[in-house]
Design a protein around this nucleic acid. Structure first.
Lengths: 143, 143
DNA sequence: GCTATTATTTAGAATAATTCTAAGTCTCAT
DNA sequence: ATGAGACTTAGAATTATTCTAAATAATAGC
């Protein structure tokens, strides 16, 4: 429930930079995401947030998550039509979805890998972002 | 509206292989996707399908699309939380979403690019599929 | 520190894509 | 032809998310 000072500072700075206020709720949602980095859905974040802040509403969870995404403090992760998940890892990475355990694992990507993908683009195309989602079996789920 | 014989044969074979029947509706939905390869949503497929087959229902469009996906005759394409789109291009490719024009363009990927991504996986992970979505500006949308 | 202004939170209603249900229709093997 | 199972259909149901309007909280200026 406690947001480490470095993260609190990062949050405040990012919010101020975009002309938004730092609130108890935003702080708490950010801390929930940092505490257990397992790519929870909004509902899961809501459940976790409520244990320390029982009066928080689901709409607020959605609002806070949206604000955090807009200010680039967290990322959204989508798999097919499943509920959106949230991720505080801001490094260049892809996501691996294990069909067996349902776990989502961050896969760090080298600059070289991104380079290769950028080079695949036809002339005149410029990409702001590449979303990469693997699916298969993770190390814990093999025979 | 007419399904070229080679595609008709491919459809029939794939359906038979999975113990399903070849129907007018499935054939028609497949032909709609092949005719204009612009990654339509289910609603758009429905609108197009109705002009030649006015009695087809939206539920059937969803059912047929699902069947075609299951039998690997088409692919689903998802961007964030937007409606699912459908794509009859079965080659190894990624999708580029232009924020400006809203267009979705297929990006062919070399074996090398896929290789590089596969090598990024930690030991013990095996991927069945990699979904790659770029977003940015396409060639027609640059200054 | 107070107060006004503006942003944020809240509960519940609304939305939209998709799935489900149950009845009717078609297909195909016998 | 007939019956069993597969498919289609319309409309209801579901579900993640967004919207709405009122209540509350944060900040700037005094």
């Amino acid at each position: 429930m406690n947001l480490a000072p470095e993260y609190k500072a990062r949050l405040d700075k990012a919010l101020e930079h975009s002309g938004q206020r730092s609130t108890k709720q935003r702080e708490h949602i950010f801390s929930v995401l940092l505490e257990k980095r397992d790519h929870p859905t909004a509902d899961e974040v809501y459940a976790r947030a409520k244990s320390d802040m029982p009066t928080i509403s689901l709409a607020t969870v959605y609002n806070c998550l949206e604000t955090l995404v807009e200010t680039s403090l967290i990322r959204q992760v989508n798999f097919e039509r499943e509920p959106t998940r949230y991720c505080p890892n801001l490094t260049q990475h892809a996501h691996f979805y294990c069909r067996e355990s349902g776990e989502i694992v961050d896969i760090e990507l080298s600059d070289e890998a991104i380079e290769t993908l950028m080079k695949a683009l036809p002339k005149g195309f410029s990409a702001r972002h590449i979303d990469i989602a693997y699916d298969g079996k993770c190390n814990g789920c093999h025979d």
